[in-house]
Nucleic acid binder design. Structure first.
Length: 859
RNA sequence: GCGGGUGUGGCGGAACGGUAGACGCGGCGGACUCAAAAUCCGCUUCUGGCAACAGAGUGCCGGUUCGAAACCGGCCACCCGCACCA
């Protein structure tokens, strides 16, 4: 048999085909969603986290949008009315960096990037409803966001208070945490200071109980994300305890602490306050050494990681507090760098024996360690702690009226006693802090308020929205361009008409991404949302994005949705009914001995698994599994892959390589393997007629149809459970089965047609191409066809393979008819030569039979 | 530091507590070709053995079970997040 008619092309021309089918889908308007689901079919809203328009799409985008597109196309085929929109998370720091570095305006830079990335996304063949596209930097979007903010204000969900920021004293700007490198400003190199600013906050903590409680209802979210959110919200029961100062300090008579362990009050050996605490300030005013220590804490960086990883340090203020229960006993007040001002009251009492941080601190500064909780089975006369605190439950001792109580009973008794004395009470404390949304930057949504000397803070009237960003801004000067713009901030007070000042802070970009999914349901509306559309489409049925958003973005969006529901904008309290978190895309990175990072195309692999620089032959340090990043130069441009191999190849490789929730490693070899499969499937269809087998008998058709229908069942189950790599494996098996099948032509034609439909969510262009080869001139699009159904009659097997074990070790396998009697099976199994040898004449004590699977003899 | 996760051949991975390694990548051998590419066929966890087969094996140590990659306890390594990166 030859390869087929000599005039048939031997290769699939994916470049022409992909463009052709993208146009056909667009002409048929297959992917546009109605404004409100019309009820003809169940609605399904698929959404991937929208991209930041950095300039080019990266592999993480390709993975994210491929996953979403598989879901969208599959659900459409399963009879859903699908909404699958796309937009741009377009505000943010990089646009300002580009403006400072290259002199391009942030808006021009951003919209040029969007144009480029839109074209790249279109080349992927995604089944998106592009008519709903918007960018968060469109005034039509951020103006509606300003309107929402005014509603938040009206609902009492906005507060203004002071908080600490990273300050670059040379550049005169606030720095993001990522702009602080080793405690220094990334551009100026100057040591970063903490500075206190008045900032806008959204009162997410008012929703803390609901946000925690409702995690139980999110049964299509990954367990780990729910756990992380629950820990982040951090509900803990404990007590607030007011310690009287031995001597009043600046008129203050007491310090309040929060503790989750009021039962251990008798083990107290010190009290510690944060460096930002008023008592610390009072100490600083009295003692230059204290002020020096506070300054040192202030250079520590504002992130929790930086604070907790820093060496534990303290300073004894000389102030003392009285114990609430022990008459006459007083304890020193320290300033400690591990106490967070934002958590609890910014002060804690130290019980070294039963808290690890406290004992580290106590050992370092020679403070007493007094055990008061006796672990089960320990002797009170001998129990002591060394370097490790005992943090578990036990029986209280050395604790007067608490002696003999267990941990829980002790907490209750201590709280009762504190309340009776009027020096404390039981409280629920939350780790969650209010959301600071102020940013001192240009490229963000202006916060729509005006400051007036007489009226105070005045909201911009809704009919004056949007508050547009000025276009003529100067990035040459350091600081916030809005603040030093000559005219923009000078406006009259809307209330009294006297000269006032615009707020020059803009919103955190997380605000932009906290409601975009709702705006997609009515992207052009003159109000932020349209209730009928939002309620019709929300919640998002399947949301897909990176695990790095497990907490902040997802929690902020949940808060926003609840707040919007509370204000009557929509009905659904939760934005995302289903969540899938994808892994990162990684690539090996290559570093030269002189510290240069080399791009993959500058590198040659060596047989021993290493790599050398192609130009010089210098051996390189290869590090596998590095996150793709510009600084390590290990990024692969998806655009190049798509033009060289086609979108289907890129999509197929990304799906085939590994489970989508795990990190994946991009490999050239894997891509070319995927492309081979694309060509092979196409050939299967294109050469069907010429491959012989037309004379095959009807009897040979049945095994092939069984294979096809088993594949339908397996691929359906795999797609339902996000096991896309397994779906790919099953389709490989089916291709193998079709190629080697002697079935007649018609059966093979049917098999290839069904295969095309199964492949369609993953490789949509190839599916159309194959379908059009099999059904020339019909003009039907696979993208509009229903999902194939597996025929139960073809799923039944005639025989099965049973594993035969002796003592759990495999000794033989048996192929038996499906309906075989147990006794007959046991006899056959026992008669096997290998089984007999393993039994070695010993009596069989037990026979275990797992139907359809295994027989195990216990001797 | 705190919180969360992951770990299976040379590589990516598959496996309702029931035949570990499906499927693919890579490699080796062969066919076709003047040759190459493309394509096709075979082998490919490790050790011993011509083979039949036997032993070992899912990060490490221990446990539960007739049977553990999966369940439990204790470790190790790596990855993600930590509130102004998006």
């Amino acid at each position: 048999m030859t390869d087929g008619p000599s005039d048939s092309p031997a290769r699939y021309d994916f470049v022409a085909a992909e463009l052709r089918w993208q146009r056909a889908w667009s002409d048929a308007s297959l992917f546009s969603a109605p404004d409100v689901p019309d009820g003809s079919k169940p609605k399904y809203y698929v959404l991937e986290m929208f991209p930041y328009p950095s300039g080019k799409i990266h592999m993480g985008h390709v993975r994210n949008y491929t996953l979403g597109d598989v879901v969208a196309r599959y659900k459409r085929a399963r009879g859903h009315q699908v909404m699958h929109p796309m937009g741009w998370d377009a505000f943010g720091l990089p646009a300002e960096n580009a403006a400072r570095e290259r002199g391009t305006h942030p808006a021009a830079w951003t919209y040029a990037n969007i144009a480029n990335m839109r074209a790249e996304l279109k080349s992927m063949g995604l089944s998106l409803d592009w008519s709903r596209e918007f960018a968060t930097c469109d005034p039509e979007y951020y103006g509606q966001q300003q309107a929402l903010f005014l509603d938040f204000l009206g609902a009492g969900l906005v507060e203004r208070r002071k908080s600490w920021v990273n300050w670059d004293p040379v550049d005169g700007t606030v720095l993001a945490n990522e702009q602080v490198i080793d405690g220094k400003g990334w551009r100026s190199g100057a040591p970063v200071e903490k500075r206190e600013l008045s900032q806008w906050f959204l009162a997410i903590t008012k929703y803390a109980p609901q946000l925690l409680e409702a995690l139980n209802t999110l049964d299509r979210w990954p367990e780990r994300v729910r756990t992380m959110q629950a820990n982040w919200i951090g509900r803990s029961e404990g007590a607030r305890v007011r310690f009287a100062l031995a001597e009043p300090v600046d008129g203050t008579a007491e310090v309040e602490v929060f503790t989750t362990r009021p039962d251990t009050l008798y083990g107290m050996s010190f009290l510690a306050v944060a460096a930002e605490h008023p008592l610390a300030a009072a100490a600083g005013a009295r003692d230059p050494k204290a002020a020096e220590f506070i300054a040192e804490c202030r250079s520590q960086g504002t992130s929790e990681a930086a604070i907790e990883q820093a060496e534990k340090k303290g300073f004894d203020t000389g102030f003392r507090v009285k114990h609430p229960f022990i008459p006459g006993a007083t304890f020193p007040v320290w300033i400690a760098n591990f106490v967070l001002m934002e958590y609890g009251t910014g002060a804690l009492f130290g019980c070294p024996a039963h808290d690890q941080r406290d004992i580290d601190f106590a050992r370092k500064y020679g403070l007493p360690v007094m055990p008061v909780v006796l672990p089960p089975g320990e002797d009170p006369a001998t129990f002591d702690v060394g370097k490790t605190a005992y943090t578990g439950d036990g029986t209280l001792f050395h604790s007067e009226f608490l002696d003999g109580l267990g941990t829980e009973a002790g907490k209750r008794a201590a709280i009762d006693a504190l309340e009776a004395k009027g020096v404390g009470q039981g409280v629920v404390n939350w780790r969650l802090r209010d959301w600071g949304v102020s940013r001192q930057r240009y490229w963000g949504c202006p916060i729509p308020v005006i400051h007036c000397d007489d009226c105070g803070i005045v909201p911009v009237p809704k009919d004056q929205l949007p508050v547009r960003l000025p276009e003529d801004v100067d990035f040459a000067r350091p600081g916030n361009p809005l603040d030093h713009h000559p005219t923009w901030k000078h406006v009259d007070c809307p209330s009294c008409g006297k000269p006032g000042r615009r707020e020059t802070d803009t919103f955190d970009t997380f605000v932009d991404s906290s409601w975009y999914f709702a705006r997609f349901t009515a992207p052009r509306a003159e109000t932020p949302l349209v209730a009928a559309a939002a309620n019709g489409w929300l919640p998002v049925d399947q949301y897909i994005g990176g695990i790095e958003h497990a907490i902040l973005h997802l929690l902020y969006s949940r808060f926003f949705t609840r707040a919007l529901a509370g204000m009557g904008h929509l009905d659904t309290p939760e934005p995302f009914a289903g969540l899938f978190t994808q892994g990162m895309v990684q690539h090996a990175s290559y570093k030269a001995p002189d510290g240069r990072w080399l791009a993959p195309d500058e590198v040659e692999a060596t047989p021993d698994g290493g790599a050398v620089e192609r130009a010089t032959g210098i051996a390189l340090t290869v590090s596998r599994n590095d996150k793709m990043s510009k600084s390590k130069r290990n990024t692969i441009d998806p655009g190049g892959i798509i033009s060289r191999y086609g979108a289907d190849t890129a999509r197929w490789f990304i799906l085939a390589d590994n489970p989508p929730d795990r990190d994946m490693e991009w490999s050239e070899a894997g891509v070319s393997g995927a492309h081979r499969f694309v060509q092979r499937l196409w050939r299967l269809a294109a050469t069907l007629e010429s491959r012989g087998g037309a004379q095959g008998s009807e009897g040979e058709a049945r095994p092939l149809m069984q294979a096809v229908h088993r594949t339908i069942a397996a691929v359906t189950a795999a797609l339902d459970s996000f096991a896309f790599n397994v779906a790919v494996a099953r389709l490989h098996e089916l291709a193998n089965a079709i190629e080697s099948s002697p079935a007649p032509l018609e059966a093979r034609r049917e098999a290839v047609g069904l295969m095309a439909r199964l492949v369609a969510p993953m490789m949509p262009h190839l599916a159309e191409e194959i379908w059009s080869i099999l059904h020339p001139g019909e003009g039907t699009l696979v993208a509009g066809m229903p999902w194939p159904e597996a025929d139960p009659a073809l799923l039944m097997a005639e025989s099965m393979t049973i594993a035969v074990q002796v003592l759990g070790k495999l000794r033989a396998t048996l192929s038996v008819p499906v309906g075989i009697a147990e006794a007959e099976l046991m006899a056959l199994a026992e008669a096997e030569e290998n089984v007999q040898r393993a039994i070695a004449g010993k009596p069989i004590r037990k026979r275990i039979h797992v139907p359809g699977r295994v027989v195990n003899f216990v001797v």
